[in-house]
Design a protein around this nucleic acid. Structure first.
Lengths: 127, 127
DNA sequence: TTGATAACGGGAATCATTGTCAATAAGCCG
DNA sequence: CGGCTTATTGACAATGATTCCCGTTATCAA
C-alpha cells in the first residue's frame, strides 16, 4: 500500500511512528510541535502527510477552521457526541451510520464512501 | 429563523436575492465577482455569509481546496452527499439519522440534540 | 430629522499550506 | 568501504482564502 518509490528516511519513519501512537486526528502544525524532539521540518511534515494520503495510508478531513486533520487508517471509525455548553465529548461507534452512508451513497451512484456524524446536545451537568 | 437583530441593508438584500437565484453551492469569491454590478464589498460578503450560516439559513461545506462553499438551505432538515472530486452535492433526508442521534445522545444523558451527517464519496462521473 | 450605532468597504494582517532551491543523505554500484 | 546519483530535506518566501481594523456611511427608533 505504501508507495515503493519513496526513500526510507529518518524523518518519514519518525512521522509514521508518531502517528502509530496517536489515536485521534491531528493537524500538521500539532504534529510539528509534538514532534519537535525529532527535528523534522514543517515542509517535510506536509510533504509526508500528503504522500501518505495519496498512498491511502491516512484519513483526512478538513475541520471547521479549514485546517486539515490526519489519522492513520485502520483505527476504528467512530463519531463524537459533544456538549454545546461545556464542550465535553464522548466517542461512540455507530454501525448504523456506516450502513446508512453506504446505502445512501450507492443509491445515488457514489462509491468509496466516507462519512462524518456529529451529535451536539446539552449534557446532564449543563442543563 | 433569520436573526432579528440584523439590519436590512441593500447589500444584505442583494446577497440573499442572488442566492435565491442560485441552486448550486458558490464560494465567497465567486459570489463577489458574479455580483460585481451590485457593488458589494468582499468583506461584507464574508460577513453576510457568516451571519446567514449562524442563523441556519445557509448550508456550507469546505471543498478539497479548503474553500468554503455556500447555498441557501431548503426548509427541511437534511444532510449532504457530496463528491470528493467535483463537489457535486445531493441532499437527502435520513429519518434513521434523526432517530440515531436522539437515541445515542439520550443514552449518555444528553438532551436537545442536533446533528450533522455528511457523506463523501466519488460520483459516477468522477470514478 | 436626528442621534446612536450597526454595517460597510478597502486594505492590511493572519495563518495554513505550497513553492523554491541549495545542502544533505538514501540507496546503489563497484 | 568510498564515490555517485538524485530524491529528500528544511529554512524561507510566496500564495490565497478569510478575518481584522477603522474611518465612513446608512439604518431606524424616537
Amino acid at each position: 500500500m505504501s508507495a515503493p518509490t519513496k526513500r526510507n528516511t529518518r524523518q518519514r519513519r519518525a512521522i509514521i511512528d508518531f502517528l502509530k501512537t496517536r489515536k485521534e486526528f491531528i493537524s500538521a502544525k500539532e504534529l510539528y510541535s509534538e514532534m519537535e524532539d525529532s527535528k523534522v521540518g514543517l515542509s517535510t511534515i506536509y510533504r509526508a502527510l500528503s504522500d501518505l494520503v495519496n498512498d491511502g495510508d491516512l484519513d483526512v478531513f478538513i475541520d471547521n477552521d479549514g485546517e486539515s486533520r490526519f489519522r492513520l487508517c485502520g483505527s476504528h471509525h467512530h463519531h463524537h457526541l459533544l456538549c454545546r455548553k461545556c464542550g465535553k465529548s464522548v466517542e461512540f461507534q455507530a454501525p448504523e451510520a456506516e450502513a446508512l452512508a453506504e446505502r445512501l451513497g450507492a443509491s445515488e451512484g457514489f462509491s468509496e464512501m466516507e462519512h462524518r456524524l456529529e451529535i451536539i446536545g446539552t449534557c446532564r451537568e449543563c442543563v
